[in-house]
Amino acid sequence: MLLLKEILDPKYGMFAHYQETRAIWFSELSLEKQGMYFLIGLLCGLAIYNFTIINLPFPLVLYKKLLAEPVELDDIGGLCPTLMRSLHSLLDYEGDDVEDVFCLSFVMSREVFGSV
């Protein structure tokens, strides 16, 4: 449990933490190799095998992916409900002036190791 808690710490950058839902997801900006994620999977499997309760705040969509179930737009709500509602608003809008109405320029900024 202590090892998993340490691995999930944001300072390692292996997982993106979503404040709105307190969920985590795999970070595409991680400098770690796939072997580290394999290690996390082994630790999770070992915990399940030993009936140990661990806190893994993954959204439901991860389990849907593991079970090969279809993933939908609403599944992003498990990570960021605001983003899900915004994307639904864009899809539901029927006018041609999307950029003007929603004031969108389709620019995205990211925080990478403390810098935007």
Rank of each mutant, 00 (worst) to 15 (best):
L3Y: 14
L3I: 05
E6Q: 13
D9P: 00
K11M: 14
M14F: 10
M14L: 12
F15N: 01
A16C: 10
H17L: 05
Y18G: 00
Q19F: 05
I24K: 03
W25S: 08
F26G: 06
L29K: 10
S30H: 12
S30I: 04
S30L: 05
L31A: 13
L31R: 15
L39W: 11
G41W: 01
L43P: 00
L43S: 02
G45K: 06
L46W: 13
I48L: 11
I48Y: 06
I48M: 04
F51A: 08
I53H: 08
N55A: 14
N55E: 12
L56Y: 01
P57S: 10
P57I: 07
F58G: 01
P59R: 03
P59A: 13
P59Q: 07
V61A: 09
K64R: 04
K64Y: 02
L66F: 12
P70M: 09
P70Y: 07
L73K: 11
D75L: 03
G78V: 01
P81L: 07
M84Q: 15
M84I: 02
R85V: 01
S86N: 11
L87V: 13
H88N: 15
H88I: 09
L90Y: 10
L91Q: 15
D92Y: 04
D92T: 15
E94W: 03
E94G: 04
D97P: 02
D97S: 11
F102E: 07
F102P: 04
F102W: 04
C103E: 10
L104T: 10
F106Q: 09
M108E: 15
S109E: 15
S109P: 04
G114P: 03
G114L: 01
S115K: 10
